[in-house]
Design a protein around this nucleic acid. Structure first.
Length: 417
DNA sequence: TCTGGGGTCCTAGGACCC
DNA sequence: TCTGGGGTCCTAGGACCC
C-alpha cells in the first residue's frame, strides 16, 4: 500500500500559521509580480475565485468579499515544506517527496493504514500547523484518487481505498480529467469518444490507449487496475535542466537592464547547480515581449551557447549568458520576461576537463564556496557580481508580501505581553 | 497599468551511420 | 522490371505535473 499526503491549500495554509486570525477567512496567494491567483483557501474557492485568474480582473471581487491577498512568499513556503516533509519522515520507512506540498509514503508494512494515516496527519498539524489530507491505496495513481476523495468528502482527511468494490465505486464517480496524468487535452479527446469517468477509461482496450495516449496513458490505466507501474523513488534523480526565469515588475527596454536581469538569473542557475553538486555545459538565454499587449510589436528570442567544459562557476555562466543575450537583443522593444536555462548536466566530480582549458578551476571552486557560505550566513545575494546591478528596477512586483517568519531574523514574530 | 515559474516524458521526422 | 535492414542522434512539438 502507498499513501499520498497532500497539504491542504498549501500556500494559503502557510500564510495562516502565524496569523491565526485568518482562520475561516478567504485567502488568496498571487504568483510572482502579483500576476494571477495560484492558491486559494476553501473560503476563497467558495466565493468563486478561479485558479489562475489574473489578479487585476479580480480586484472588485477581493474587495467586496474581504479577501486577504498575499504575494507569493516562496522562502516561507519552502521552509514549511521542509518542516512538513521532515515530520512525515519520522513516521515511515520510505518516502518520496513528490512536490512542494506532496509526498508518497511506503505503507506496505503498515498493519492499520487508517490509524497510521490519522496519526501522521495529527503530528504534522501539531508540529507545523499545516493541515494535510492522506489517501492510501495499492498504487500511486489510486492513492491520488483516494487523496482526492479524502480532501473533498471526509471529515478526518483520511481515506483508505483497498477493496475492489470500493475502488470501482470511486472510479465510477471520478471525472476522467481529475485523474493524475489526464489533462485538458486528453479529457476533451476522451469525452468526444464517450469516456467521461475514470471507470470508463479503465474499460477501454489497452492497445487503443497505447496508440492514443502513449505509454504514459497505458501505465495510468494499469495502475488504476491495481498493477503498480510507478515505484516510490526515495532519492530524486539529477535534474536534466535548471531554469531561472522571471517576468519583470515593469517595462524593460534597455540592454543594460536586461543584462542585469539575465546576469542575476544566470547566477541563480549557477547557485542551483552548485547546490546539487552538478555542472552544465549548455546555456540557453531567452527573452520575450508581453504577449498580452497586442498594441506592441511582439518578439521572442532564444539562443544557446555550448561551453567546452561543464561548469557551475557563476563567473563563467554569467559571462556566457551575457554574450548570448547580446546576440538576441533587439533595441526598441518593450520586454516583459527573460530567462536562463542550463542543461547537459553532469555530476561535479565527473567533469571531462579540456586540454586547452584556461581556467584555474580549483581556485574558482574555492571562491564560489566562499561566496555561497557567506550568502548562506548573512543573506541571499549579499556577495554578488557587480553586473547583477544595484537598484534592480526590473525586479518583481510584490505588494502583499508577508514576513519570512522562519528564514530571516529581522522578520521573527514578536509577541507583546 | 495589470496575465507565474518551475519541471518531466514521449513521439515523429529528419539527418546521418554501416 | 528491379533499389535492404538495422541503427543512432537531434529537434520540435505536444502532453502532462505541481
Amino acid at each position: 500500500m502507498i499513501a499520498l499526503a497532500d497539504c491542504n491549500n498549501f500556500y494559503a495554509s502557510c500564510e495562516r500559521v502565524f496569523q491565526p486570525k485568518l482562520e475561516q477567512k478567504p485567502i488568496v496567494v498571487l504568483s510572482n509580480n502579483d500576476g494571477c491567483v495560484i492558491a486559494r483557501s476553501n473560503e476563497a474557492k467558495k466565493i468563486g475565485i478561479p485558479m489562475g485568474a489574473p489578479a487585476f480582473k479580480m480586484e472588485e471581487l477581493f474587495e467586496n468579499n474581504g479577501v486577504h491577498v498575499f504575494s507569493a512568499n516562496f522562502a516561507l513556503y519552502g521552509d514549511f515544506s521542509q518542516r512538513v516533509m521532515n515530520t512525515m519522515r519520522t513516521e515511515v520507512s520510505a518516502m518520496e517527496v513528490y512536490s512542494i506540498d506532496e509526498s508518497f509514503m511506503d505503507f506496505s508494512n503498515v498493519a492499520l493504514p487508517k490509524e497510521k494515516a490519522l496519526e501522521i496527519r495529527g503530528k504534522v498539524k501539531l508540529w507545523t500547523g499545516i493541515p494535510i489530507s492522506i489517501g492510501v491505496a495499492p498504487t500511486k495513481a489510486l492513492a491520488k484518487v483516494a487523496n482526492h476523495y479524502a480532501k473533498k468528502f471526509t471529515v478526518d482527511g483520511v481515506l483508505v481505498l483497498e477493496k475492489a468494490s470500493h475502488i470501482s465505486r470511486a472510479l465510477k464517480k471520478l471525472p476522467v480529467q481529475d485523474l493524475w496524468g489526464v489533462g485538458k487535452r486528453y479529457a476533451k479527446f476522451l469525452s468526444q469518444r464517450g469516456v467521461v469517468t475514470a471507470y470508463d477509461l479503465v474499460g477501454l482496450d489497452e492497445g487503443w490507449i497505447r496508440r492514443n495516449m502513449t505509454v504514459g496513458g497505458l501505465k495510468l490505466v494499469q495502475e488504476l487496475k491495481g498493477v503498480s507501474c510507478f515505484a516510490i523513488q526515495e532519492s530524486s534523480p539529477r535534474k536534466k535542466n535548471i531554469c531561472t526565469a522571471r517576468s519583470f515588475g515593469r517595462k524593460v527596454k534597455s540592454a543594460c537592464e536586461l543584462k542585469e536581469a539575465v546576469s542575476a538569473y544566470a547566477n541563480t542557475c549557477s547557485e542551483k547547480l552548485r547546490a546539487e553538486g552538478s555542472c552544465a555545459s549548455l546555456i540557453t538565454v531567452f527573452l520575450a515581449t508581453n504577449p498580452f499587449d497586442s498594441s506592441q510589436p511582439q518578439y521572442g528570442g532564444s539562443r544557446k551557447i555550448q561551453l567546452s567544459t561543464p561548469t557551475n562557476d557563476s563567473l563563467e555562466i554569467v559571462k556566457a549568458a551575457i554574450e548570448t543575450l547580446k546576440q538576441i537583443y533587439k533595441p526598441g522593444l518593450i520586454y516583459k520576461k527573460a530567462g536562463v536555462v542550463v542543461s547537459e548536466i553532469v555530476p561535479e566530480n565527473q567533469v571531462q576537463l579540456s586540454l586547452f582549458d584556461g581556467v584555474d578551476r580549483r581556485k574558482r571552486k574555492c571562491l564560489m564556496n566562499s561566496v555561497d557560505q557567506i550568502n548562506k550566513r548573512i543573506g541571499k545575494n549579499k556577495v554578488r557580481l557587480a553586473v547583477q546591478g544595484f537598484d534592480r528596477k526590473w525586479r518583481l512586483k510584490q505588494e502583499h508580501l508577508s514576513p519570512c517568519y522562519t528564514t530571516r531574523f529581522t522578520d521573527l514574530l514578536t509577541v507583546s505581553l
